[in-house]
């Protein structure tokens, strides 16, 4: 089943972000959304994740307890080690399934090349490594939908290329529905199967292309 957004309405005060906005997103594909800063890309992700509520319209096909989100910044608990950070989001889910959460955490850390820093605190890692932890957390969490809000925007070019490669490698092994927003055309082109270009507020789809 696809994600179906129907007649979405959202405003902050006088600023109308979405007005009668509709969209259908394919499952198990990476949909890239391009658009100018402040055009409502992050608002769409927050509405899809339940962090924000629409003023009208519906979003169907999303299970709110099955969402991963890679934010612009890693959002790691500074007082917990990297392994504890992953355990923080994963433990309840893993216990429900089989309880073997530590092995899965170690395997994921290995996959993102961070197997040696599991006992480090976030402050002891570089920005790129922290963002890799955020990617690991998103894939470790058993979700159907992965939301990504410009997760590579604060990184230098070399690191960005490395992380995007890591991301695609992991996604190939675990194909989830991904909504990836960015204002960077190159990032969107490299990762997405389908690209949507948003207008300024209120949001309209200016262009829709399949890669």
């Amino acid at each position: 089943m696809s994600i179906i957004i129907k007649n979405l309405r959202k405003a902050y005060g006088d600023q109308i972000i979405f007005d009668d906005f509709s969209l259908i997103l394919e499952k198990n594909k990476i949909t890239g959304i391009l658009g100018p800063s402040g055009s409502g890309k992050t608002t769409l992700l927050n509405l899809c994740s339940g962090l924000d509520q629409p003023d009208g319209g519906t979003i169907e096909g999303i299970n709110l307890s099955s969402i991963s989100y890679i934010f612009q910044e890693p959002r790691l608990l500074p007082w917990r080690t990297i392994r504890e950070n992953l355990r923080f989001v994963f433990k309840d889910q893993a216990v429900k399934r089989n309880g073997a959460h530590d092995q899965e955490i170690d395997a994921m850390l290995k996959l993102v090349g961070l197997e040696t820093v599991g006992d480090y605190y976030p402050q002891e890692l570089s920005g790129g490594m922290r963002q890799r932890v955020a990617i690991a957390r998103a894939f470790l969490y058993p979700s159907e939908l992965l939301l990504m809000d410009e997760p590579f925007s604060s990184l230098d070019l070399a690191l960005k290329n490395k992380l995007m490669g890591d991301f695609l490698n992991i996604w190939e092994k675990d194909k989830r529905t991904v909504i990836f927003v960015s204002h960077n055309q190159d990032e969107i082109n490299r990762l997405s199967h389908e690209i949507l270009t948003f207008s300024d507020k209120p949001v309209r789809i200016l262009r829709r292309e399949t890669i």
């Binding site: 994740s49 989100y69 934010f71 910044e73 959002r75 923080f88 989001v89 309840d92 969490y141």
Partner: peptide, 11 residues
Amino acid sequence: KLLQMAKVYNV
């Protein structure tokens, strides 16, 4: 931001 992260991940 940490609270939002925890909410999304259903902690």
